[in-house]
């Protein structure tokens, strides 16, 4: 009998702890599959964040380090400088990367640190119970913006991919989504390209993945995916923001 699907060896057998309908699981799988397919997984070193993916070290089947909140790019820098020939990646959420870790991500990017960052943007703090994130949409209700995010009071969402694409250090930056099969396929291709460019020593690579958080958005999994399409993507347009192999910024 032909095998049509096999779980990647780059994920452990530990069941994910994520909520039903959360797309972290998909993003984990895509990352792990890419590591395996490129043959760099066994010797990869990953850095887990603080946030919903805090236990990522239990799932990715390679050497892993757990970083303090926001510091994953600095930790990855230390690792990569010691092992320049290994695939080094961080897996970070929006609070971790775009709020408390804003300095670390900007400087890892501008240094052209040869790492791959999987940036999961779901516009909310999940693990701590649905507080406003740096990427929370204007008007979006969270537990710390109960009247909806008032931009006059607490400003506007951070557009990480756009912002980092203005720097010279990054080799590849793309924003993708995983709300349907077609987009999942595109997301995997983006992640693959990022790791390839890292291994070629081209520079800093970051894939921003728009993700859902049904639990904290107060939606069913299906409604959440709809909301990604109707509200998230218009605010966070998908596409390649930087690609040094394309002969110019997009």
């Amino acid at each position: 009998m032909a095998t049509v699907f096999k779980k990647t060896s780059m994920l452990t057998d530990k069941p994910f702890h994520y909520c039903p309908g959360c797309t972290h699981g998909i993003i984990h799988r895509l990352t792990a599959e890419v590591l395996e397919e490129l043959g760099i997984g066994e010797t990869a070193i990953g850095v887990a964040p603080v946030g919903c993916a805090v236990f990522a070290y239990d799932y990715f089947n390679c050497d892993m380090m757990e970083a303090a909140h926001g510091r994953a790019p600095a930790v990855a820098t230390g690792i990569k400088r010691v092992h320049p020939d290994k695939a080094v990646f961080t897996y970070q959420g929006d609070g971790d990367l775009a709020s408390i870790g804003a300095a670390e991500i900007v400087h890892a990017a501008t240094r052209g640190e040869k790492i791959t960052v999987i940036f999961v943007n779901n516009a909310i703090y999940g693990m701590t119970g649905g507080q406003m994130a740096p990427t929370t949409l204007p008007g979006q209700v969270t537990t710390t913006s109960p009247y909806g995010r008032d931009t006059n009071h607490c400003g506007f969402p951070v557009h990480v991919s756009e912002m980092l694409a203005t720097l010279n250090g990054p080799a590849y930056i793309e924003r993708v989504s995983v709300h349907d099969v077609a987009h999942v396929k595109k997301a995997k291709a983006a992640i693959k390209k990022a790791f390839q460019l890292q291994m070629e020593g081209k520079g800093f690579t970051l894939i921003e993945v728009i993700s859902s958080c049904p639990t904290n958005w107060g939606k069913t999994p299906k409604e959440a995916l709809e909301w990604v399409k109707s509200d998230m993507i218009p605010n966070y347009p998908l596409g390649v923001y930087k690609d040094i192999t394309a002969g110019g910024d997009q």
């Binding site: 850095v47 303090a68 930790v75 990855a76 230390g78 690792i79 400088r81 010691v82 300095a103």
Partner: peptide, 16 residues
């Protein structure tokens, strides 16, 4: 970029 980053780079390199 900061002392915060420096000590976390140390953590990464030491852990490696």
């Amino acid at each position: 970029e900061s002392e915060v980053a420096a000590i976390n780079m140390v953590y990464g390199a030491g852990g490696a």
